[in-house]
Amino acid sequence: MGRVIARDLRLAFRAGGGFGLGLAFYLILTVLVPFGVGPAGAELARIAPGILWVGALLACLLSLDRLFALDREDGALDLLATAPVPLEGVALGKAVAHWLTTGLPLSLAAPGLGVLLNLPWPGHLWLGLSLLLGTPALSLIGAFGAALTVGLKRGGLLLSLLVLPLYVPTLIFGADVARRGAEGMALGAPLALLAAVSAGCLALLPFAAAGALRINLR
């Protein structure tokens, strides 16, 4: 599993676009929002946590369709399936690599982008924390969706259709943490639920993803 992570990270670094693309998309999305809703600071501050969460979610989606598709095309997935490593580990490794190249940088960038949307101060911290806690679930759910659609020629659009409804609980709890953090409210409950969603995804989805991969490799 570690080797899969290391290889995918190295490939992402070499290819250049790996990190940058998702981040650039996130930045542009954040910049566009005030043009859509107007420059009033109070208005922006109110919607900032939600916008920044939805933006991170969409940025996560960008690179998902290549998660297994590249390995499928060049045969690496076939070879990994016959290698003495569990496919569950491979699926988890790919999801972790995806998180390290998208979820983690997005989480770190989000507090900075919060400044653009006039997010009140303690909100930055909670936004970053909620994304750190929630984006692993997004990557794991995405890996499951990518595994389902890996055999399809144009699976990208279908992937979004499958994955976005699965993102609902994570988005609700994550954005709620960020919103409550910005408004200075108690946020223990959504924080715990968000962590629970991520932990549950971590425990279950690598198996579902590996199962879907096995079906697709037949």
Partner: peptide, 12 residues
């Protein structure tokens, strides 16, 4: 198994 699709990554 040695197939044509040999799983080699161009970036490595």
């Amino acid at each position: 198994y040695g197939a044509h699709a040999d799983g080699m990554k161009g970036g490595l």
